[in-house]
Design a binder for these strands. Structure first.
Lengths: 255, 255
DNA sequence: TCCTTTGTTTCGTATTATAAAACATTGTTT
DNA sequence: AAACAATGTTTTATAATACGAAACAAAGGA
């Protein structure tokens, strides 16, 4: 998708890095050039550039390339500017300890919610998640918890872009979603009942700042075998309590 | 520093992103073009490219540019491939809780040690640190803890590159450092006594893998007013115990 | 030994990125 | 109100750069 007034070679570098992000063990030049549909020597030259600056590293034995640690520096700078991450971390830790499931913190980012912190569960059967990844607003507990408390015109804009179907449980009817969001506003928490991913259930609650705006959401997430429907009442109380505590740390006042 | 067979415009994009990483609140086009010494319209075009792909974002009110969340996705992919981070996190949390100081996990990265996880202390007076940033081997507790257990030729290579002076306490004499590393090997822990930064003291210990190689280090770090010299014996025991537990999780066997 | 495959290097030139100039907008000063 | 200053954004001729085809080097397998 070429965009106007952009630098093509930078776009190519971006494509290459994003392709490398999908392969934990890295990739060779030939495979990568097939994937991004660029000539092998072009890919090699771009990789060499990224290699010189630490954005890519090469395994000397396998000669495969993978993302380099310099991206950690840049990502770390972003994490570091997020006050809410600092404020929420202990509360998330305590919550994860208490319920023994994965716990996540997300913030709104464009048309999706982005994971900015997580505490993994200690169970053998776990769900997979990754900082920096995004979740759809309408199909995730954290997304719905944010959507329910966004200003109406913002929520309308999200809904009007269409509600993609991820599983047979995903809410794809705008009217149905709006009713659902009203219910979330009444209850104070949201449930993703295998709407985003089969076999995963999440209970989420919104976080507010000093102006009363929703700025984030947290969730308790796990496989449906451990996050059962019977547990929802208990988990919802706990996630709301933690969200309230984080909100207060962000300057929110009840009422 | 131009390098051969590199793509100049990609290098420029990298320089721009790294400059933006130094300014939490972002920067305008004009300031940025002064800093990277490129024409304003060139900088603008590169920024626009990065903007389109989420690597940079622009505050609509101030028009300032800052790093974008896509870097969090790439950084998250790197964090996610690190098994040690997953294994160590709970142990680090417990340690931080126990000593009420900042706790860090670092791994070797080229000629420095890079921070890949941290637990901040709950005290009012804290030290500043950031995931993705690097510490010099010879002047940090984590660095020295790794250096002391590296194969001799690797340690020699590090030392032969010169020992930069950061404070009046920094060890800059190669012979003195080698004696110091021997002491660390005997004791099993390292101390950074305001060698990297005035007012900061750290106690670190190495982490080993199943082959017996040093693969990481952890530390307890804080301002000298709370991490006092009197506390070093106690803190060293605790940091070594935690490092040993992480080592075992990484497959290390004593003996 | 020959063949295949992969990563790396070379180099002519077509394409791309540059940067100077102009423009649009906002805030400040006279 | 008009003039000025400063900033971000757009336009465009062309110099510079990036591209990609071809060749090369090395390793592994038949």
């Amino acid at each position: 998708m070429p965009v106007e007034n952009t630098v093509q070679s930078i776009e190519r570098a971006i494509r290459i890095m994003e392709e490398l992000a999908t392969e934990k063990e890295g990739m060779g030049v030939t495979e990568l050039s097939h994937r991004v549909q660029l000539h092998k020597s072009t890919v090699h030259r771009i990789l060499n550039t990224l290699l010189q600056y630490g954005y890519v590293e090469q395994n000397p034995n396998t000669e495969r390339y993978r993302l380099g640690m310099k991206l950690l520096y840049l990502g770390g700078a972003i994490l570091d500017r997020m006050d809410i991450r600092r404020e929420a971390h202990d509360i998330l830790n305590a919550l994860a300890e208490e319920v023994n499931e994965a716990v996540h913190l997300v913030v709104p980012e464009g048309d999706r919610a982005i994971y900015i912190d997580k505490i993994d569960s200690k169970r053998t059967i776990r769900m997979y998640s990754q900082i920096g990844r995004k979740a759809p607003y309408h199909a995730s507990a954290v997304g719905k918890a944010i959507l329910a408390f966004l200003p109406q015109e913002d929520a309308e804009r999200v809904i009007s872009k269409g509600l993609e179907k991820f599983t047979k449980n995903t809410i794809t009817d705008p009217e149905k979603l709006k009713e659902h969001l009203e219910m979330i506003r009444q209850r104070g928490y949201a449930v993703d009942d295998e709407e985003n991913e089969v076999g995963i259930r999440c209970v989420g609650a919104p976080v507010f700042d000093h102006t009363g705006r929703v700025i984030a959401a947290i969730s308790i997430s796990g496989p449906t075998v451990t996050v059962t429907k019977e547990k929802i009442p208990e988990l919802s109380e706990k996630v709301m309590e933690s969200a309230r505590r984080i909100s207060e740390k962000m300057g929110w006042k009840a009422g």
